[in-house]
Design a protein around this nucleic acid. Structure first.
Lengths: 130, 130
DNA sequence: ATACTTGCAAATGATTTGCCAGTGT
DNA sequence: ACACTGGCAAATCATTTGCAAGTAT
């Protein structure tokens, strides 16, 4: 899957990939680094992103988060108040996508930037009598 | 509007505000700086954001973009292919918001992160016979 | 006069790049 | 062997912070 692009399956590369596939969610380059140099991690993530094995998301103001590209391009909802992140299958947003497509001709993707806003809990909390 | 928070209407502060209100769209801190120090610009933008006169958006991988908060909280659609940005009135996304609210209880806001994806032109271009 | 503000320089955090030694194939 | 890679240090970009001098009120 990797050598098909003239690339080597080096130790560092394998480690990054393994860490990413072992993770249950988005990870920062730092978290994936372990003992190896972050520069190498960034370099590898970039390479792996180019050959389509990895992608990254921006969920807030912090560092970028990396996820494996396989297993479906999950999309994200993020609460600006509590920071909670919900990952959903693309199918669950088909209706939303269709509405945006009809209205603006725009094919929406919430894989790179999340649907920001307030989650149910925080909305409730805000409108409750304190 | 400004002194009501114990703040002074200093020259720099006024200049930032003027530049922002003269602009027809989002601007980076650098662009707003003119001859003054960027640090001061960032400081002022932060202050102005706190008192609700300014807000900022992240439309891509570059620096943050600042806009005046008044005149409605416009929301953004952004094409990942050509970078085109479309600002729309919140009302235009009411249907989308309602759908997301019903499905996830999440009150969506596209004022800070845009609706990313592909604009109509780029979608057409991509599916056209080359 | 006093507290808020500024410019300037240095610090921080995230990510990138140059360079040369190391290693897959 | 040769080209792809890794570590390490330094560079870059965006943004923040410390500090002493400047200024609105």
């Amino acid at each position: 899957v990797v050598r098909s692009h003239g690339l080597r399956l080096s130790t560092a590369r394998r480690l990054v990939l393994e860490a990413l596939y072992a993770a249950d969610g988005p990870r920062t380059a730092d978290q994936l680094a372990g003992d190896m140099d972050v520069a190498s991690v960034y370099r590898n993530l970039e390479t792996l992103e180019e050959i389509g094995l990895v992608r990254h998301v921006h969920l807030g103001h912090g560092p970028g988060l990396y996820v494996r590209a396989s297993e479906g391009d999950r999309e994200y909802l993020r609460c600006d108040s509590c920071g909670a992140v919900t990952a959903v299958e693309p199918a669950e947003l088909e209706g939303v996508r269709a509405l945006i497509r009809d209205r603006f001709g725009h094919e929406a993707r919430f894989t790179h930037f999340p649907i920001a806003g307030r989650c149910a809990d925080c909305v409730a909390r805000a409108s409750d009598p304190h």
